[in-house]
Design a protein around this nucleic acid. Structure first.
Lengths: 346, 346
DNA sequence: ACGGCCGGGGAGAGCGCTCTATCCCGCGGC
DNA sequence: GCCGCGGGATAGAGCGCTCTCCCCGGCCGT
């Protein structure tokens, strides 16, 4: 950075070999005489050589970078970037995604390029950047079901992998959770512990995951003799959880069990119940979903359905890598199993 | 991505001009005949041309990318990446940094490359990546005072800007907050509202910001006739806030005001006080620091010292940009003013 | 009327790397 | 003793872009 950085040519001169040989040693390709290898390695050391990424990218057509895109529907009119990013990061979920992705990328000396696509304008920006080769592919986390980005990426031929199954089929791989199964675990736990007047706070029903959790919950409840479950829709935020709970409590003052579709809302549910003088779990049992950090910090700590987000994110990165390398050409899917984590709230 | 992407040459052929002219039109450099500009623009449209980033980087020696590095001290033995990233993202603070940085970068069609440097090994990895030109410069957010990364970056000649003044001087620009001033606002508010037995929960004292907040708080208290303020050290987490408060309450059962060095700890303080049967703010007034999202979701909502993190982060990016472009060569500093935000807790 | 100047366009030399084609040299087979 | 062979190294052609130099032609001043 300071003075002129050494190039392959410089190293070759110092080592007394050709540029090509140095390149081969560095990339560990083909047979090179061990003696020469050593000489080259020493020359690299002495010159402080670091390969130029741009030059390498130019010829290999790989940037060793993947875009990590957080994508909204673009139908939240007037929501600004600040509000959007604030909302995204307020949920501990996204941090776990980053953690998992980085876990896969780093050993391969790759890095995630952070992008936000919450409006039509930023969406085409992102698309343009990708077509320029800023990244070899994209990992997409949508916050809305009808996110147009996946289809756009597929059309543009950009390798991409999604977190969660898209609402409309699109030729891209995705990882997902067996949401119905998770909801079943929650329902059975509440029933098994003796709850009889059980309600649920769902996520935004525009999101497929919310629908699946609701469906799974209803199925299990019905199978166990509870044909009608009171439902209130939330927005995956703490406030929305409180609001939903407030409504449910008004209509069903005798409720004794709640399934909230994520931990943040479960926390809201707990707060509201306490404000209304109900003890958790003694008066009302509460089960959350995700097993995020708030599940631990919440009072009481939440019994919740664990979603292995880090593993899922790592799998997403691995899948993308396969697509980029051309090892895998057809889209596929990986569905992970949830797990019930018992704590104090139910 | 699918078939061969069009190059400048292709566009030039379609437009019937030379490669150089197309380049000039695209980069808006020098005067080009308006008629020809139009022809070129149409050719770009028709061919669906997108400039190749690697090729451009190779010659301009700019990647249009900046590294956003979250850096630990490396002296948290055995802490794994997952734990580290989880801790980082658990604090809403980091999300605000990202938001501010993206706010500056995006209009310039740049993106942040996310990196973590929590150990010696990952630190040298990051350094190597930077020397390869993966990014034009680095934005560093340290979680520890004695983070060695800034010095390493300075030595390597990598343009970098820090969030917060480093503990030892190093030739890098930084943005920071007038922490003492913020603490003064908190102290005065508690005193003005009539609190007389005031205590404080500090951040980890290895962090300069924590020290400054404590010093500022003590100064103001002393100036107003309170020579000794009970202090407990926390770790900027909710749990540590609860633990610290528990200790303070045992030693000073008659306390009536608390200044917590960040909102997460203030939330912990509120939770503990409630568990111990103290009403906030009637029995005990609580003031936080940051004005992060938890300040709003906390019950009661927190009166807190606002830190304009987004603005600071944007300024950090702007400063780095100046350094990279060579507009600014000498390191500088920008110190922002805090502001008291009144809510229910005090 | 002529030379200089200037706006607008083109030719071509790289940027630092990878990779194919090629070459060199020692060795075994006939 | 000659040919073929193959491991091990080199030469050199790009990858797609930017940018410096140069050229051309019209307009001004004298």
């Amino acid at each position: 950075m300071s003075r002129q950085a050494p190039t392959l040519e410089d190293v070759a001169r110092v080592a007394g070999v050709s540029r090509a040989t140095v390149s081969r040693v560095i990339n560990g390709v083909r047979n090179v005489d061990p003696g020469i290898q050593e000489v080259v390695r020493r020359a690299v050391e002495r010159t402080g050589y670091a390969p130029n990424r741009a030059a390498r990218s130019l010829v290999t057509r790989r940037s060793q970078t993947v875009a990590l895109i957080v994508s909204g529907a673009g139908d939240t009119p007037g929501e600004e970037r600040n509000a959007f990013t604030a909302r995204v990061f307020a949920d501990p979920f996204f941090g776990r995604v980053v953690s998992g992705v980085v876990g896969y990328l780093r050993p391969r000396s790759m890095h995630p390029l952070l992008m936000f696509a919450e409006s039509a304008e930023t969406r085409s920006q992102v698309l343009a950047d990708l077509r320029q080769g800023s990244a070899d592919g994209a990992l997409v986390v949508s916050t809305h079901a009808d996110d147009p980005l996946p289809a756009l990426l597929a059309d543009a031929g950009v390798p991409a992998v999604l977190f969660a199954r898209p609402s409309r089929p699109v030729g891209l791989s995705y990882v997902d959770l067996a949401h119905r199964e998770g909801a079943r675990l929650a329902a059975e736990h509440l029933l098994d512990r003796g709850c009889r007047r059980i309600v649920t706070v769902t996520g935004p029903l525009g999101v497929a995951a919310s629908q699946d959790r609701l469906a799974g919950f209803r199925d299990t409840m019905a199978r166990r003799g509870h044909p009608y479950v009171p439902v209130a829709e939330g927005g995956f935020t703490l406030d929305s959880g409180m609001a939903a709970m407030s409504g449910l409590l008004a209509d069903h003052p005798d409720l004794d069990g709640v399934f909230a579709a994520n931990d943040l809302m479960a926390q809201g549910v707990c707060q509201l119940l306490r404000e209304r003088g109900r003890a958790v779990p003694d008066d009302v049992a509460v089960v959350g979903f995700d097993d995020s950090s708030v599940a631990v910090t919440c009072r009481p700590p939440l019994t919740t359905v664990r979603q292995p987000v880090e593993e899922m994110a790592a799998a997403m990165a691995a899948l993308l890598d396969e697509h980029v390398r051309g090892v895998r050409t057809e889209p596929t899917s990986m569905v992970f199993d949830p797990e019930l984590v018992l704590r104090a709230s139910a």
